[in-house]
Design a protein around this nucleic acid. Structure first.
Lengths: 347, 347
DNA sequence: CTGAAAGCGCTTACAG
DNA sequence: CTGAAAGCGCTTACAG
């Protein structure tokens, strides 16, 4: 069905080497020859076969991007940033998702190696050095997010949650909050753990009373059930810090169901600033993680590292910032504190 | 850096043909030979090069999926359905987005042809037959969504919006609504046009008063500005049908800002049931389009069509259903009608 | 059950 | 500026 470069060559009365050169604009070609070749290419609607090209050149034009699942609203912007950057430089991307499935994790790595990618951005916390040693062993560069320091063939991007968290805590302190709770992400997720620790440390430092720290699982329903536990306790915090926006949105739902008003009774703060955070009701105050930027940097990190003679990894940092919306407000009464809230709810 | 099949062959003391056979489980192999080969493969961490394989076999194991933009919440479930189905059958997918950019549309088609895909699912309305004739000309199967009837090498999946829309209209009629408005998607989007027509026809048939039909652009902010126009008019409809959930969410925001309560003053209905529809406040009543299913069917359509001797396309249908949530309720007063609403708002 | 050889469709020194 | 030829790393009839 589809034509080959030899066919084009014959019809244009040149060698296939010439056709290749015309198509890749890699040599100067006699104008007349070029015209003839291009003419035949158009007539035949010829397209070169990328697999043959990849095999012949030996240099891969592919980069991998691995995420956990496509339906997680954390990823779209990240994918877009990575892809845009890759395409701009003439590279292509192989998008892989692990779906939180260990079999898939293995097959994804395999697919990446077989695909002869130059480098891969591992943007899911469910994969770490041990899971990717096969990649580096094959000479493929890797960039992680929130993993340890860089080394040969592995770079790292640290998201500076500290900064956004400090801003958030300062914000609620200014508003007059004294009693906080934390609904963190899953224990087995390294990013979730980093966030939880930063949250707890920051809250302690500012001397807020931490009435509860519970783990959850980054899903909406988990945020909801975590909140039900909080609501059942004798004392309600006046502000709830959530490990991500999904948890926060679930928490807001559950609070609403329990008849707790946001932000009048309880303030809620999320992390990420997913696209729907501002559509939540009330709009969610959250710590923005610049995810499109994260994707861009991930690509640049790989690209740069692979140009280094020693393939030495680099450490990158990405700042976060608080975005104040309407889910945070002063607690009901500064004087009454949370005991006062209890009283009022009892009426 | 990475090893080749020949290396494995030499070390295992066999020919590369044998290595190939062992790895592809395509022939019976002497157990001892197989063991030896596998052993060397493990030692060397050998992975076969997929580009060489694709070139040698000539049969592509790739399918394309083209969407408009990854950050549109309509697509994640669709992608997941398509990808899952492809992987289950041992195929791989090339995800391409046009980003509503005509240059990108061209380069995406080119990339697909160069990638030698077997078939491609065009799931964005911004591409139609004329944009994809190159694909079919190259013998590549195509499946569209909401485009005309099937033909050679092109299948089509029609989403039966009629059904969900009929349910929705019945729902609001039962609730007692008489005055409706429609905020449709963009005029140049064939799916948006189909939906608008179905909406208007259905509303007329049930004799509802259609106070306004405005076009919008499928984005949140567009829904918002469309609503501002409606609110400025002398009479407010009691129910607003939106071309998709994003428009509906924007509309709800703008209504809220205008001091119009949902659903007490105005009911709102969306289309799609994106994952955040139920997190909107109030949760959005919407017409669900089973998008993961759409992805699955799209793949099956391609796969089946390409097995047919004549490569004859097939027509598929996908049903939609109303999902009732809290953004719809009886109008303020059946007796007063919308004039009554006007009165009350004037107070 | 296994091997030698041709071939997939390109690219790229090497010559000229 | 252009061509002949080797080679990229596999697969697959064809023999045996």
């Amino acid at each position: 069905m589809s034509h080959t470069m030899s066919e084009v060559a014959t019809r244009a009365g040149v060698s296939k080497a010439t056709v290749s050169r015309v198509l890749n604009r890699t040599h100067t070609i006699a104008p007349e020859t070029e015209r003839r070749v291009l003419e035949v290419v158009r007539q035949l609607k010829y397209h070169k076969n990328v697999h043959a090209r990849r095999l012949a050149t030996g240099r891969s034009d592919l980069f991998g991007l691995v995420i956990s699942e496509i339906i997680n609203p954390y990823f779209p912007e990240l994918i877009r940033g990575f892809q845009a950057e890759a395409w701009d430089r003439g590279f292509d991307v192989l998008l892989c998702n692990t779906e939180y499935n260990s079999q898939r994790r293995v097959s994804v790595i395999q697919k990446l190696i077989e695909g002869d990618v130059r480098g891969v951005a591992i943007m899911t916390a469910s994969l770490d050095r041990s899971g990717t040693s096969e990649l580096t062993a094959a000479g493929i560069g890797v960039v992680f997010c929130n993993l340890g320091p860089a080394e040969r063939l592995v770079s790292n991007i640290s998201i500076d949650y500290q900064r956004g968290i400090a801003q958030a805590i300062e914000h609620v302190v200014q508003l007059g909050h004294r009693h906080a709770a934390v609904i963190a992400g899953p224990e087995d997720n390294r990013t979730a753990v980093i966030i939880k620790q930063a949250l707890v440390a920051g809250l302690n430092e500012r001397k807020l009373i931490l009435s509860a720290v519970v783990n959850s699982n980054y899903r909406v329903d988990a945020g909801a059930s975590a909140v039900r536990a909080l609501v059942a306790a004798p004392e309600l915090p006046t502000v709830i810090f959530c490990g991500n926006d999904l948890i926060a949105m679930g928490a807001m739902n559950a609070l609403e169901e329990a008849g707790v008003r946001i932000p009048e009774d309880v303030s809620v703060i999320g992390i990420d600033d997913i696209s729907f955070a501002f559509l939540a009701r009330p709009p969610l105050t959250t710590i923005r993680v610049p995810r499109e930027r994260l994707g861009t940097i991930a690509f640049q990190a790989l690209d740069k590292m692979l140009q280094l003679k020693r393939r030495k990894g680099v450490d990158y940092y990405l700042e976060t910032d608080l975005v104040i919306r309407r889910s945070t407000a002063p607690p009901r009464s500064r004087e009454l504190g949370s005991a006062g809230l209890l009283l009022e709810r009892a009426r």
